[in-house]
């Protein structure tokens, strides 16, 4: 299934399919390791539902929903451990 990163629920993970967006934001996303094929896990949302915290290439990154909307993802199955940690 395909959807953009901002639509992920906490604990969901996926593979980056493509990165859209205008120059600077896209550039920054690349530099931070969000490129095609990178695996991303949505770890949590900030108290007001935005920004998001994700794990990518083994570290924690925070970005806003508007920026996450630039990232098209192929959804994977929910990662069991995180779902458990979040009490699901």
């Amino acid at each position: 299934m395909e959807k953009t990163l901002d639509l992920f629920t906490v604990g969901e993970s996926g593979i980056v399919k493509s990165v859209a967006g205008e120059g600077k934001i896209k550039r920054r996303l690349f530099d931070m390791g969000i490129t095609n094929g990178a695996e991303i896990l949505l770890r949590k949302k900030a108290p007001l539902g935005d920004p998001l915290e994700v794990t990518v290439r083994g570290y924690e990154l925070t970005l806003r929903k508007t920026e996450a909307a630039c990232v098209n993802m192929n959804v994977q199955a929910e990662t069991a451990t995180v779902a458990k940690e979040n009490g699901k």
Binding site: R28, Y59, E60, L61, T62, L63, R64, E67
Partner: peptide, 9 residues
């Protein structure tokens, strides 16, 4: 402005 930032351990 965008907000794309690392969260250090």
């Amino acid at each position: 402005p965008p907000f794309i930032m690392e969260l250090p351990a």
